[in-house]
Nucleic acid binder design. Structure first.
Length: 170
DNA sequence: GCCAACGTTGGC
DNA sequence: GCCAACGTTGGC
């Protein structure tokens, strides 16, 4: 049997990925995550198939997550967290006495930091280099991918002077 | 609160 | 499997 190279690339290397998770701060904010026990909470309530597929198949323990506040006064990237579990069934999908094959998944995330300067959606739209960010091109997707380059640019705009190395390779 | 864009559902 | 109707998202 021949395994496609991509199979190994995805499963062997486990390169750290960078994501952007959207949340409505009125419901669950970065402050709420910080205040959670251990600064850790399950990221539940994702009810979109593409977002679900990413959570289940691509998001993995150790990945980095930018937290974006939506549906609020100043929609913005406000800080950062990290993924501290692999995907598991979202328990909020099961109503009492109605368990079954899980359809929705979640991961656990742990608070890392607020950024000194939140990066507003308006500012992101003003920067041509962010034109291909999913926040711009697919604004409704709740689990978004961030490239390494975008990540470095975002950190700089958010007032982070000495970003952690974004990948294992220096 | 409005409304455009988008995702999902369900009849055929 | 098409597509109209409907529901949701989320910026403004």
């Amino acid at each position: 049997m021949i395994m496609p190279a991509l199979f190994f690339a995805d499963t062997d290397e486990e390169a750290m990925r960078i994501w952007l998770f959207k949340t409505e701060p009125d419901t669950f904010s970065l402050n709420d995550l910080r205040a959670a026990p251990d600064g850790t909470s399950g990221w539940d309530g994702v009810r979109n198939y593409q977002a679900r597929n990413r959570l289940r198949d691509e998001v993995s323990n150790g990945d980095r997550v930018l937290i974006y506040h939506s549906s609020c006064k100043v929609p913005a990237i406000v800080g950062e967290a990290e993924v501290v579990s692999n995907a598991y069934p979202d328990p909020t999908q099961f109503t009492a006495g109605h368990a079954g094959e899980p359809r929705w998944y979640q991961v656990d995330v742990r608070y890392h930091r607020h950024f000194p300067e939140p990066l507003s959606l308006a500012t992101i739209r003003d920067h041509a280099e962010f034109a291909d960010m999913e926040l711009v091109t697919r604004p409704r997707l709740s689990i978004q991918q961030i490239t390494d380059r975008q990540y470095q640019q975002i950190l700089a705009l958010c007032g982070i002077d000495e970003p952690r190395s974004a990948s294992g390779a220096a």
